[in-house]
């Protein structure tokens, strides 16, 4: 505002200045209101966007979780189904593979493998006999002793299973390939197909061998009746360091109640 002579100002001049200042004040207020409105609109837009985003992320996350579950479930089913092909043809029950899987995980944990690896072993375990799909029914379900020729054919399921699965680079299938290949190796080197000895046999193979035999001995098979527990335990003690890794045999007896609990919970 211009400098004014306060003593000699006329009423008209005062009124003119008042009007001018009032006018400016109105301009400021009007513009301030406009800005406030704009801010409110922007804020509302932002909030809507934010809420929308949260909702969208929530829905997308839920979908991903469901898809993941679906994938995991499918994977489990495929693995069990694959395993069951071999098992069914040899008239073994579906629960055999599930029990062996549980025993294997337990052995792995007690042996000192971490949870992730033990779980991998559990998931891969049902595929250890997958190579049996290439073995003729007549041999698989034969009552009584194999001829040498038949036994050689039967033994081929390890190599066949390995060749089938080892093509994959997935950790799960890599693990399954080891199991398929080595679950008939013996700690003393008298097993097949490679005749590996002691810790030359992968820990997965040693674990599966024990778990598989423990369950097989306790079940009826086309070639034998189920053994009672004492006979099984005597066999395990006798085969400590022979068929089985002695450390695993110790683990087995130290935690026997837990293994029997699995067997009781998953009876055929």
């Amino acid at each position: 505002m211009r400098n004014i002579d306060k003593d000699n100002i006329t009423l008209e001049e005062l009124y003119r200045l008042y009007t001018k200042q009032n006018n400016r004040l109105n301009i400021i207020i009007k513009r301030s209101d406009k800005q406030e409105l704009k801010f409110r609109e922007l804020n509302q837009e932002l909030n809507e966007y934010k809420n929308n985003l949260e909702e969208k992320v929530k829905i997308a996350t839920k979908e991903i979780v469901e898809l993941n579950l679906e994938i995991e479930e499918t994977q489990r089913e495929v693995i069990f189904t694959m395993g069951a092909i071999g098992e069914n043809r040899s008239k073994e029950t579906g629960n055999h593979v599930k029990r062996v899987a549980e025993y294997s995980k337990l052995l792995a944990l007690f042996y000192g493998l971490d949870e992730e690896e033990a779980e991998l072993l559990r998931k891969a375990s049902p595929m250890h006999d997958i190579g049996k799909i290439a073995i003729p029914d007549a041999i698989l379900n034969k009552k009584g002793q194999f001829t040498d020729e038949e036994f050689e054919l039967m033994k081929a399921h390890s190599q066949i299973g390995y060749d089938m699965i080892n093509q994959s680079n997935r950790p799960l299938l890599k693990t399954a390939a080891i199991l398929a290949f080595q679950h008939h190796e013996r700690f003393d080197g008298d097993g097949y197909p490679q005749g590996l000895k002691g810790e030359e046999i992968h820990i997965y193979g040693r674990i599966t061998a024990l778990a598989d035999v423990f369950d097989a001995l306790g079940s009826d098979r086309c070639y034998k009746k189920a053994w009672n527990d004492n006979r099984i335990f005597d066999f395990f003690k006798q085969e400590k360091g022979g068929y089985f890794d002695p450390r695993l045999v110790d683990i087995f007896f130290e935690n026997l109640d837990k293994f029997l609990e699995i067997r009781d919970n998953m009876r055929d």
């Binding site: 505002m1 211009r2 400016r24 301009i27 400021i28 207020i29 513009r31 301030s32």
Partner: peptide
């Protein structure tokens, strides 16, 4: 902001002088 706007009226007053 509004107070800046008020200052700019004064700014333009000086220019007008």
């Amino acid at each position: 902001n509004s107070s800046s706007l008020k200052v700019y009226f004064e700014f333009f007053d000086i220019l007008e002088e």
